[in-house]
Nucleic acid binder design. Sequence first.
DNA 1: TTGGTAATGGAAACCATTATCAATAAGGAG
DNA 2: CTCCTTATTGATAATGGTTTCCATTACCAA
Lengths: 157, 157
Amino acid sequence: MPHGNGMGPRWWHRRFRGCGYRMTVPRQAILDVLSKTSRHLSAEDVFMAVHKVYHHVGLTTVYRTLELLVQMGLVSKFDFGDGRARYELLEGSKDSGHHHHLICTKCGRIIDYTDFIDEEIKLLKETEKGLSKKYKFKITNHLIQFYGLCDKCKDKR
Amino acid sequence: MPHGNGMGPRWWHRRFRGCGYRMTVPRQAILDVLSKTSRHLSAEDVFMAVHKVYHHVGLTTVYRTLELLVQMGLVSKFDFGDGRARYELLEGSKDSGHHHHLICTKCGRIIDYTDFIDEEIKLLKETEKGLSKKYKFKITNHLIQFYGLCDKCKDKR
DNA sequence: TTGGTAATGGAAACCATTATCAATAAGGAG
DNA sequence: CTCCTTATTGATAATGGTTTCCATTACCAA
């Protein structure tokens, strides 16, 4: 189901133009790659996928575009501790795609989870309010990650 | 109040020996530095502080020792997104020093906070239990960070 | 004291990410 | 459709935190 997230080439094009940016072949290709995977791709992953179709697109452009997408709020950038950043296209228009990650410290496997989001949001709302007041800190974002051993790794050794 | 955390040279020495490691001058110096600050030092920060007293201690050893301390569970390693790892000596013997961070995305300032720990622990316990069961994932650690603008930065511009 | 091994440190290697800069191409005006 | 402005691109070089290498040194049990 391509572009089942309600976005797609046309939507992205408008979004870019609205920000004063141009929609180019490399940018389109990068968005395509991100929209067709559920994995957490590194810049090089994206580069290799794009490169299969458009041999002329360079790694530099991939980095630049990913950074641009992050700044536009279309993509999230994560650090799972393996020394390279990971990128993920944000689904939907609101928080509908909000999720967190379980990270296996042995094999690096990433599991997305959306459980306990309600309780989490409640705690976060409360926490954010309290912290904002106490430290006069305007919170714009948060990160929650769990580390441990996945199904396959926890029995070995 | 040196070593008010109930540890100190003697305690560390025993801990090292217990793990089959040796307590050396560089390791002692690095622990000293970490125990005398409440800031979140980078490897180079630690190196420079140690270097003032022991000119012969090398950066490589600092990296190695910090990694060792992390593995021994004496030190926490954080990534605040500025491209360098930060290290923090764990206080106390249990979770008494447990805290999280507010990170100013503009100036990089870090604020430690311990508020809402009770509610947080409740949510985490619940979440961890649920996730462990659902994904057969053994959770060993978690990370919670809030990003935003600090007091001084949020009014500017 | 001695032998075996852990630990060290300087230099070089690593590697993801960024900066440089001339060449290219998107898209509005005419 | 064509031109023109300027954002965008991509090959290469540079950056910078962290690791690796390896010969030397320090620790400690026997």
